[in-house]
Amino acid sequence: MTFKKLFSGLLAAGAMTAATAAMAGTELTVYTAFEAEDLKRYAKEFNKQHPDIKINWVRDSTGIVTAKLLAEKENPQADVVWGLAATSLLVMKNEGMLSPYAPKGVEALSPKFRDNDATPSWIGLDAWIAGICFNTIEAEKHNLPKPTSWEDLTKPVYQGHIIMPNPNSSGTGFLDVASWLQMFGEEKGWDYMDQLHTNIARYTHSGSKPCKLAAAGEAPIGISFAYKGAKLKKKGAPLDVVFPKEGLGWDMEAAAIVKGTDDMAAAKKLMDFAASREANVMYNVGYAVVAIPGVAKPVQYYPENPEAMMIDNDFAWSAANRSAILKEWQGRYDSKSDPKN
């Protein structure tokens, strides 16, 4: 951090690009919601193949990165989005903010893990699977049986013991709600949530927080996603990761080129890498399901074949109905939200 950096913004844009271009090879501004601890590893793998391209990560939670991208719509700052929910990329695609490109080896990806257009606007990387974090110590204290299904969570015994993310602010929360609506059908889905709501202690803003709170014993049960549960269990938290038997909602971490990038060549190189087998192996360290079939090895604390438990997620439907679902959810649960119920 130098004095120069502060005023870089004040300098004419032209002078700036000239200066940075003269400094090193190429730099790419990459917006991402990858886990912070993965960033260095991912960049290192990429630089093994392309040492001349420097990645400038802009990392934040899914909601914030999406908001940032949309806010900057008129004047995009990002060159590439690598590691953001496919649902968000769908919104961007609809806004005409993505530049379609078929990376090398795109044909190897499972059809689920790519935009269906001939030249895909985005590609999937790995799957982000719903899961329940269950704190065994706290459960014992409160005499709670271990749930095995979504349905179980509506039992009166769990009243006030469940935390889940608010779909209005969390991608994971929306993934849960969308999957219930798809699995159970709209009417039954809302019925289910009505019952679940009576058991919910609180809704959090972030998707990983319920699991972390479960790990810390703030609540015995956190509806979250598998990745986080597995990570925390590994660290020694008294958790079991539960995969409800009805099926698991999921979203993809996906990648795309942002329209208006000033270095298309480098952006394409990054997309090629993101779709490559090496990259898929890299994603598999934390995620049990990745884009290229057959690459994934089982990940600790995940079920044997998680892909089979994943529901047939209709992303287009989710994206199209997103506002309506959120509004309905808000009307039902947000207005009468009172910490006591």
């Binding site: 950096k5 004040l10 700036m16």
Partner: peptide, 8 residues
């Protein structure tokens, strides 16, 4: 506009 995203 170029100020956006800077420390400034």
């Amino acid at each position: 506009n170029s100020l956006y995203g800077t420390l400034a």
